[in-house]
Design a protein around this nucleic acid. Structure first.
Lengths: 154, 154
DNA sequence: ACTTTCTCCTGATTTTCTAAGGCAAAACTG
DNA sequence: CAGTTTTGCCTTAGAAAATCAGGAGAAAGT
């Protein structure tokens, strides 16, 4: 039920690289009939291995030229800070990821904006406007060495 | 040639959320014929707005239960450190992202591993084994508040 | 006012998806 | 160990979708 074999992994691997591949071609590459591969894929989706499909967009082409990481420290004396922070983050379109971490700070935020001007506005109007935000440290990305690599399934 | 209109943005937005949507259904949602939408999409791909498609896999289901961020400081006295580091990162399957940042450290690495044991092995055998790595700081993620949100295209 | 280009449409052909039915090997069960 | 069930795969056929060719109408440029 929750175990997957080598063929399943190959399906996931191919699909992670090309989510729009035709089932016929996928079956050819796997070495099974389209029907079998379709059934396996259906199972992989049902069991939660595949959560969905998406187009990979080029952020620079869309005017989002600046990638930043922000370390956020919260003021733990205020109640509900964590809930309120998490909720505000969800509705913020610039924020692509947000993780609560163990270590020197509380949250690590990954955001994409047009440029430094846009970032200053984002920092002031969104992040610092939240109650309970005590301190932030911003790291601007100069070069994306590796971007959104596929998960190792093999 | 490089400008996109409201319809294009809508296509990108829908496709980012569901990369496997049938062109027929996409056209219905847009309010155009399948052919027109297909032509627009082809152009968006040709002009680099769409870089590809991929299945979104559940890392936990694949045994990758631990997400970590690592700040890496390099020893700049050695020549080629940056090139060698970048190259090694590319071939490391645990590393999902790696960015050169401006600020207190040199690289920010995002990696997924099975557990702390696996992370210790990764840290020792991959990261620290690289020549020129002076210091690392690891932040283990306790909770993923927001994961891989779509880019704001609208 | 004329041409060119752009965007979209319709209709026909080809490809792909999906569902039904069957076969053989493996796993259960008494 | 024999009988049954389940599982995984296959082929086939009908439905759906993608793709291509051709053309109409509006906008832009000359």
């Amino acid at each position: 039920m929750t175990e997957i074999d080598k063929i399943d992994r190959k399906i996931l691997s191919i699909l992670q690289g090309d989510g729009r591949i035709a089932n016929v071609e996928l079956a050819e590459r796997i070495g099974l009939s389209p029907t079998s591969v379709g059934e396996r894929l259906k199972r992989l989706q049902r069991d939660g291995f595949v959560e969905g499909y998406g187009a990979r967009l080029n952020p620079h082409r869309l005017g989002l030229g600046l990638l930043v990481f922000v370390e956020v420290m919260l003021d733990k004396t205020t109640p509900d800070v964590f809930e309120r922070f998490a909720k505000a983050i969800q509705t913020s379109p610039e924020v692509l990821e947000c993780h609560m971490v163990a270590g020197g700070f509380d949250y690590l935020v990954k955001a994409r904006v047009a440029d430094m001007t846009a970032y200053r506005r984002f920092l002031g109007e969104t992040l610092l406007a939240l109650p309970g935000v005590r301190e932030t440290r911003t790291y601007a990305v100069m070069e994306e060495v590796k971007r959104d690599a596929p998960l190792p399934v093999g």
